[in-house]
Amino acid sequence: MIWTMKLQHWPFHHPPFPTSSHRESISPVMQRSRTQRSIWLFSQRRMFLGLFLSAVLILPWLAQTVQSYTLPVRVDRWLEVRQVSGDVTYSYAPDNQIQPATVGETRLQRVGDRMTTGEDSNATLLVDTGIGFVEIFDNTDLQIDELTVTASGGRVTRLNIMQGRAQLRVRSFLNPESELEIRTPAGVSGVRGTQFGVGVNPNGQTGVLTEEGQVTAEAQGVTVYVDAGFQSLIVPGEPPTPPIPITNDVTLDIIDLQRDGDSVYIEGSIDPLSQLTIDEEPRDVDPDGRFSFRVPREGRDRIPATVSTLSGSKQDYELAVP
């Protein structure tokens, strides 16, 4: 079926629209109809204008909200064991079953995955895609806090060292959103490509040492930049100390050592940024490096002690019991 429309033309001598006399003859019903149509058209224009303005205001906010929710991307990220020596164990969250670490097979991948080392033990972990290596030394407890990828491909790595000592060798990041942080009970150390060491005493006191590049040490709202060749100390509850040149001092000064019944009283000092192990146990030192405590004698004439630095130097001692 074909629809046709016939157009009727007004004669030239007649006006194309009704004259005033014609408008006067329009009925009140027609006038109301025209008025209602004008009101309807006006309301439709207001409605479309309101929708347009709402879209202009809401769309940027919606895009920003969607972007914020899509920032972390779930991908296969990991720290893989590449070398072990001595007693090195790991556990996967949430069951936390402790197992011996195996080269090329053990991977820490999820938040809460953990690795620990015993006395005279160490392990080297490869960060995925060759970002760098994390070497943890004896009596160290390391845990995964975050392994994610941003929407732009930046890799965010946050590790928690609750106790012990670690060295990191990390290449420069190409993506500005990439981050690597080491968290400790005293503060946070962040890098974007460098070589540095972190040491944490049982009381949370933390030393940060930079060998190449630059590290930021943050605590109590204060950020300190630790350049290559410098080190800084973070005491829990206090801001980082101003950086000082690396000392790499393994000296153990004994002030007092004497029998005290079935125990031995030991008092002395070391470099505040070094770590002390006596009788195979990590020991706390004060911010000035001083210490004092008792250990069981157990019929021994000598007590083993070790001083380690953040750069990896180590010195063993035998403390003679009088």
Score class of each variant (00 low, 15 high):
V264Q: 14
D256I: 01
L273H: 07
T277F: 10
V264M: 12
F291K: 10
P236F: 06
T247V: 11
P245K: 09
T210Y: 00
G237N: 10
P243C: 07
P243N: 07
Q214F: 01
D249C: 03
R290W: 05
D227Q: 15
D227W: 03
T251D: 14
D288W: 07
S263A: 13
Q214A: 15
P282Q: 09
T277M: 14
Q231L: 06
E211F: 00
E267D: 05
Q258M: 14
D284H: 05
D227E: 12
T206Q: 08
A219C: 06
V222W: 01
S274I: 00
A217P: 02
F230T: 00
P240R: 11
Q231A: 06
S232R: 12
D262S: 10
I244S: 06
Y225F: 13
P296C: 03
S263F: 12
G237T: 04
D253P: 03
A217W: 03
V250T: 11
L209T: 04
L252E: 00
V208T: 03
L233Y: 09
T206Y: 07
P282Y: 10
R259D: 09
E218W: 02
P240N: 09
A228D: 02
V208W: 02
V224Q: 13
E218Y: 05
S274P: 04
A219K: 08
T216N: 13
G229N: 02
F291D: 06
V250L: 10
